[in-house]
Amino acid sequence: MCGATTGGVSLEGVDVTKETVIQGVVHRDDAPLAGAYVRLLDATGEFTAEVPTSATGQFRFFAAPGTWTLRTLAPGAQPVDRAVVAEVGVTDVDVYVG
C-alpha cells in the first residue's frame, strides 16, 4: 500500500479514499512488459475485468475490498496467477512472467 507507485501512471482525478485500486507492473527478464494481458478474477475465480499492459508494463483496476486473483497472459508464456487482498486505497502488485 502506498499513495503513488514508482513511476506509476498518475492517479490524478482518482479518489483513492473511495476507490479500491489494484495496480502494478508486469515484468519479464527484469524489464517491464508491454502488451501483456492482465485479468482480474473475483473470489470465486470468475472473470471481472481485463486490461493490456501499457508501454511501461503497467496495469490498473478499480475493484472492491476483498480477495482477487490477477491472471497474466503474455506471448510465449504460460498464464501466471497472483492472489491479491485489496482494501480501499491503492494496492501495488508486481507480476513476473517467464
Binding site: E19, T48, V51, F62
Partner: peptide
C-alpha cells in the same frame, strides 16, 4: 456483467472508476 456488478457490489467493470 460480472457477478459483482450484477449483485451490486461493483458499479462498473473493474478497469473503470466506480463512481
Amino acid at each position: 456483467r460480472s457477478p459483482d456488478e450484477y449483485a451490486g457490489r461493483l458499479l462498473a467493470p473493474a478497469h473503470l472508476p466506480q463512481e
